[in-house]
Design a protein around this nucleic acid. Structure first.
Lengths: 108, 108
DNA sequence: GCGTGTCATCGAGACATGTCAATATATCTC
DNA sequence: GAGATATATTGACATGTCTCGATGACACGC
């Protein structure tokens, strides 16, 4: 997708997605959740590893969710977050400089 | 690289690289330069397409250069910038969730 | 050397972001 | 319903980022 000059709208969209990723805390949260055996984690489970207050973690989770990188599922009093690999893959594909191989980005 | 939980340092490094990309102007600048037939462009050539002042464009170019995404070459009064595809590729590789195929990330 | 053109840096203003304490909302248990 | 636990929202503060005009630094041609 980085072949021709990006349109204003495309650039803004891609930048918004990258902005969600461009934070060390959010990257750690994302990788932490992805690394769970069940592939999911509730907020209270994430707070300790990153060493920040619960509201702050909640805020980051919200940003990641809004960016489509995490999906949210409420189960009782808990809220479980799970990574959306397709979304991450789409962002990676958007950064490809070499012509996108037809197969690689196909599965949505 | 997004397999285990990212270390603090790795997360900060990757976040810094993504921060350089996470701006619509910089994405457009990057794609614009990459789209040039010669693969390079001088500052004055970039200013008009993005519609911002010269100091602002210079600032963005500096950020991209600092992040290792652009290389700088001075030729007379002009300064030419060129995309460093390996750097972009490294960032893409760092975002891979699926186990990295041994071949893909090999060429540094 | 002087004017012109290109690029970088500086300083300042406007705005966005990360963080927390305090509070609100929701759920479960008793 | 009261108390306890989990999560989200609010308000406030500090810090970072984007942008510009003004200025500085360098190269070229006369």
């Amino acid at each position: 997708m980085l072949q021709g000059t990006l349109s204003k709208r495309d650039a803004e969209e891609l930048a918004a997605a990258l902005k969600a990723l461009a934070d060390p805390i959010r990257l750690r949260v994302l990788s932490f959740i992805a690394a769970q055996p069940e592939g999911e984690a509730c907020v209270c489970h994430v707070t300790a590893p990153v060493g920040l207050s619960q509201p702050t973690v909640s805020h980051h989770l919200k940003l990641l969710h809004t960016a489509g990188l995490l999906e949210r599922e409420k189960r009782g009093a808990w809220v479980y977050y799970r990574v959306v690999p397709e979304r991450l893959e789409a962002i990676r594909a958007a950064l490809a400089t070499t012509p996108v191989r037809p197969r690689a980005a196909k599965r949505a």
